[in-house]
Design a protein around this nucleic acid. Structure first.
Lengths: 113, 113
DNA sequence: ATGCTATATTAGCATATATGCATAGACGGA
DNA sequence: TCCGTCTATGCATATATGCTAATATAGCAT
C-alpha cells in the first residue's frame, strides 16, 4: 500500500466523517431539493441556529457544500450531485440490512408454525 | 420530518461512521478482493493485530462485514457488494474535489502568463 | 492436560467531537 | 449612524474515538 493511496484513504475517511452525523445527513437531504438559506434549514429541520451553523461549517470544511451570501441571507447548496448519490448508496446498504433481518424474522415465524 | 425518517438517518449515520476511518477503509478495500483472515489483513495492511481486531469489531457491529471461524483462523468478508459501491461513490466525490482544485490551480497559471 | 497459534477483549490515556449558551459580525433599512 | 435580522464563532463541558499494552479465549497438535 503506497503513500499516495494512504492519503486518498484519509481524505475519503474525512468525507465519510462529514456524513456520519444524522443532522448533517438531514441537511444534505434537504439540500438535494435545491439551495436553502440557514433560516430555511432551521425551519425545516428544527435545529438550533448555532448548532446548525456548526454542522454547516463541517460540511463546508470538507468541501461538500458551498455558501453564497446574497443580501441578508446565506444560501447553501451541495457542491455536487455525486454527494447525493453516495448517500443513496449508503441507504441501499441500510436497506439490505433490513432485508436480511426480515429474512431472519421470517425464519422465526416459520419455525413456529 | 417524521420519526421513522429520523431513525433511518441515524442508522445511515452509523454506517458512515464505520466508513469514516482510513484504516477501516483500507480493510474494506482489501476485502473487496475476497475473504481474508485476520492474519492476512495484518500482513497486507501493516496494522497491529489488536488494533486491527478492534476495527474489525466496528465493521462487524455496524453489519458491514461478517466473520466465519474455520479451524484456527477467522475469515472476514464484506456482507454486500453495495458497500464497495458506496465507497466508490465517495471516491468519486473526492475525485471531483481534486478536479475542482486543479481548475483553480490552472486559473492561477493562466493569470500569470 | 500442555503448549502453540490465531484472534478478541479490556483498561487507560490522549485526542477529537457534539452541544448549549453567550456573543460577535454582516447586512439592510430608518 | 443606530437598529433589527440573519449567520458565525468561542467557550465549557460531556461524550466518543483511537491507540497501546496486557490479558483472555478458541482451536489444534502433542
Amino acid at each position: 500500500m503506497d503513500e499516495r493511496e494512504r492519503v486518498l484513504f484519509e481524505r475519503q475517511a474525512h468525507i465519510c466523517k462529514a456524513l456520519s452525523d444524522p443532522k448533517r445527513i438531514m441537511i444534505i437531504h434537504e439540500l438535494r431539493e435545491g439551495e436553502r438559506t440557514v433560516g430555511d434549514l432551521v425551519g425545516a429541520l428544527g435545529l438550533a441556529q448555532a448548532n446548525l451553523s456548526q454542522h454547516l461549517a463541517v460540511l463546508r470544511d470538507k468541501g461538500l457544500v458551498v455558501a453564497q451570501r446574497r443580501g441578508n441571507n446565506v444560501f447553501y447548496s451541495l457542491v455536487s450531485p455525486k454527494i447525493t448519490e453516495a448517500c443513496d448508496m449508503v441507504r441501499q446498504v441500510l436497506a439490505e440490512q433490513f432485508e436480511r433481518s426480515q429474512e431472519l424474522a421470517g425464519g422465526l415465524l416459520a419455525d413456529r408454525k
